[in-house]
Each structure stands twice: as structure tokens, then as C-alpha cells.
Amino acid sequence: MAAQQQLGREHQGITLRGSAELVAEFFSYGINSILYQRGIYPPETFTRVQKYGLTLLVTTDPELANYLNNVTEQMKEWLYKCIVQRLVVVISSIESSEVLERWQFDIECDKTAKDDNGPREKSQKAIQDEIRSVIRQITATVTFLPLLESACAFDLLIYTDKDLAVPAKWEESGPQFIANSEEVRLRSFTTTIHKVNTTVAYKKDSVP
């Protein structure tokens, strides 16, 4: 498999494993950006890194980083198996535990990629350009999303295929929808194997 991956890189194409890695990496940076931009954690617990030609902020809190890493690793595996349908970042108020914001990443897997082993024709640069524009949009959402007045916590939900055996440490959950929400669709990107559509839903202001 490693040899194939090597081959894929050389040909400037993309393999299933490479695609899974790219998408999982995108989720890691995307979630970090959301947590920073929405002020879920104090800004001083984030550090700057260069990625996708952007300066992104990544948490330095060891416990949070570990949690995100666990999820990302699991996502990578499921992406590779093409059994994941959606990743949702749920932001809810700690006090009332009301869901205030819901970041939804719909994943369309091209399941035929599991069978044919050849790499797809799309350069890593083209994919990264697409990812960059999605991350830029996440950063820009602060301007229109309503202010999170109370202290908030976040949760990650992953929609998988029905026949998946639930791994240890994981549990089933409800969809945690927002009552009376407004939705904004962001850009999407594709690795030709995985396509990710991003939408953010937020609670409508009670006062119009």
C-alpha cells in the first residue's frame, strides 16, 4: 500500500489513502479554526501554524488536542473505508445545553475507488486550493454568525453507515438539531474520491 501511495504522489494523482488523509487533515484544521473563530476556547490557548498557504490557529491545550486527534484518526480510517457520510460540529450553550450552532460537513464517498487501485488525476495543489477557500470562508463567517453570548461547549457527531460496528469508546447519539435555524452553505471541495460539502446552521435571532 505504501508503495502505491508513493507511486500516486509521483504521478501527481491521488489514491484512496491519500485522499482520506487529506480530508481528515482538513477536518482537524477546520475544527480548530471553528473553535478559535467562534471563541469557544480562549484565544491564548491557540498557536499559529502555516498550512494551505494560510496562517491557521491550532489549539495548544494538550487535552483538547488529544481529543481532536482521536477523532481525526478514527475519521481517517472510516474515510479510507468509505463508510462515513457526515461530520457535524455541534456548538451548544453550557448553561442551557441548547444547540446554538451546527457545522455540517457532508461527505460523498466514491465507493468505486475501493476497487480500482489506480490513482485519480488531480494534483494535490488543486485540492489544497479548494480546501483553502473553504477554510477562508469559515474564518469569514464570524461577520454574520450571531454572537455566542453564553459560554459554549462543542461536540463532534459522525454519521456512518448503518452496518458499522460501534468501536470501543464511541457511542450513538441523536442528531442535535437547532430549533428555528438559519442555514448558510459554504464552498465544497473534492479529492475526486471524497467530496465535502460544508454548511453552517445557526439559531435565528429571537428579535428579527
Partner: peptide, 27 residues
């Protein structure tokens, strides 16, 4: 989503919340 075709999973145990007294700067 279709209950028949999908399952929602989450990693058990929430990530810890922001420290006590932390207030969103954006506020």
C-alpha cells in the same frame, strides 16, 4: 438523515470546557 442507512456516533466523554470565568472576547 435516514435511520435505516446511517448511524450517528460520537466519541464518548466530552472535551473539557473552556476554563471557568473565560468570556468570549468577541462579546
Amino acid at each position: 438523515f435516514d435511520v435505516e442507512e446511517a448511524k450517528i456516533l460520537r466519541l464518548s466523554g466530552k472535551p473539557q470546557n473552556a476554563p471557568e470565568g473565560y468570556q468570549n472576547n468577541l462579546k
